[in-house]
Design a binder for these strands. Structure first.
Lengths: 198, 198, 198, 198
DNA sequence: AATGAATGAGCATTCATTCAT
DNA sequence: TATGAATGAATGCTCATTCAT
């Protein structure tokens, strides 16, 4: 029991250190040395918990994203209107993005030289990340809305992520309630309108 | 004159090769060897035209982005409505994004280990990239629209980029006219509405 | 008593595992991890029975070779003719070689980076390995045979080992009786002839 | 012209350094750093001339062995008797062995973890090394000699190599003429006798 | 201006050995 | 005795940059 806990603790320490280092430098420029030092373990210890740098990176993404996907999915299940959807999404995905902005951007960059297995795992993550949004929109959009849920989801997620990213870039504080309000103001009418009205 | 032209030609060759290699691998994983080979010059020649790998990378971004910014700025100057703005943006920025998606995503990842000078140049690029959109929206949004142009621009750009990115990710063809139509359908009502109406 | 037996059993398990791993990979490429796993003990346990990887390796050689030397010595003591000597040698040394070919070849390769103590132990092994052959030939060769027993032994052992090694290399079955016959045919006349006749 | 020469010189320097280091330590324990230092070049330079440590090792073996095979083949072509054959072999192969004893022993040890391509190259070397001896014996042995040339060659080569090796091991000077005489005395009668006589 | 051979700092990964339990 | 998690020195290989030609 104690051992399992200790092991989980150390694994978490490493993931946390990896998050910081990968976030700060991107995959290729990140050094295993730095991750080990930040985690307070020896370099060799990293390889007791993860097979390789690639595996550590992908495992980190999985850890962070599956947790988020689970949270978002359950929260969106209770949602009954596009308006409520936008608010919920802004809060949950906004939080993910504030914390993991640079990590998420890594999703695309890390791919090219990865092994087939790791590419597959990343691909699954990328799709999984959009899944809850797409499903919620498929359920909530007016039945004859002309924009496919896949694209609508891309627009909502893109608008949200870019707004948060822009605030960060400009050094402004990110208040997710404000972002939600703006998002709602800009997107809600278009997402709610039915075909005849457009 | 002839020399100047030849010099410009070679510089262009190198930039073109660099674009392909950086696009395919990201900054750190890209190799100067590959760029030289693809450009058809010797490795040492790269250093006659660019000070370093960082300089080559930033110069490439500048070359591509300033060209785009100029184009977009002039096109948007003629625009007189939000609707027309969305269509124009989708076409021009969409093209930039289709061609340079991976390059643009590099903007954030390459920063951390860059020299102060290069970080500044990239910072300017990132802001410049959004500038025309912000200015156009500042001019075109209803005067009492509650969403600041900075954020509105982020939303529009984010929605556009993500939609295109999603299509690419899913292996679907990117038809910018369709994207423009969807964008218009989703964003136009929210961007056009006046405060009292919201 | 029981403890001693259990201890001896475990020691034997480890040596057996070590034999397989060293045989398959040579000294440097062999991993203590693999030996431990194959022996069914934890890595740390190896160090309860042997001081180091070097010690394990040399101990293994000693175990196998002293056993062989004892067997061969006793069998050769009963031998009364060069012909019988060749047959006996082919059988006993042949068996050793079939089983330990790769291990024996390690004798020379492992030396350089070994500690002085281990080098000495290996040196003794190498000489001990030839000893019974030299002694038997010193007794059996015609009294005025011009080839010194040391060299004659080298020739017989070399001819035998290479023949077996060649058969193994070519994937042919090693039938020691056949090897003995061929060896006898080629070597016996030269070893038996007296000086005047040569 | 000059460049080609300089390149060949450096390649030769590296091979010479590699020979010493591989000879002294065996493949796995040899360090690329040491080879580079001994060759008087930077570590990276090794990789301009050879793809990898494995490639360097196999290339070295090929360089040394093919040269020997060519020499031996041409010398043995002129040989008309088993007696003359033994003398010639002792001289030529003896020289190879004196110089490359440890390298040749590496032939078998280096194999296990090598890539398929390198294993094939080594396999070819091992067979090529015996080829001239086998061919000469196939031509020179009495027509009805019961020992196959393959095995007879193994015996002669084994006897020769072990004798030289034993002398080296015991710190005695290696005089190839003496070795040839002893070899002749022990092996010639058996190799020359015809079936009826045996 | 152009070349490309040479450099060497840098990095992911391995593995013999230790030691707290 | 026995364990196996942790260590960190060691090593093969890469690649941006330089410089003699």
């Amino acid at each position: 029991m104690k051992n399992v806990d200790a092991t989980q603790d150390k694994r978490r320490d490493i993931l946390e250190a990896a998050e910081q280092v990968f976030t700060a430098n991107g995959f290729t420029a990140a050094k295993m040395d730095d991750i080990a030092e930040l985690a307070g373990v020896a370099k060799g210890t990293l390889y007791l918990y993860f097979d390789s740098k690639q595996d550590l990176f992908v495992s980190l993404l999985e850890d962070r994203i599956w947790e988020y996907v689970a949270t978002l999915t359950s929260k969106l299940e209770e949602v009954r209107s596009v308006k409520c959807f936008v608010q919920t999404l802004a809060k949950v995905r906004g939080q993910l993005f504030v914390r993991n902005q640079r990590l998420l951007e890594s999703l695309s960059h890390s791919l090219p030289n990865f092994s087939k297995e790791h590419r597959l795992r990343i691909w699954n993550l990328r799709k999984g990340l959009e899944e809850p949004t797409i499903e919620a929109l498929a359920r909530l959009l007016p039945p004859d809305h002309p924009v496919a849920p896949l694209k609508a989801a891309a627009m909502v997620n893109g608008a949200l992520d870019y707004t948060v990213g822009t605030l960060i870039l400009h050094g402004q504080p990110v208040v997710l309630e404000d972002v939600a309000r703006d998002l709602e103001y800009v997107l809600l009418p278009g997402l709610s309108q039915v075909l005849g009205k457009g």
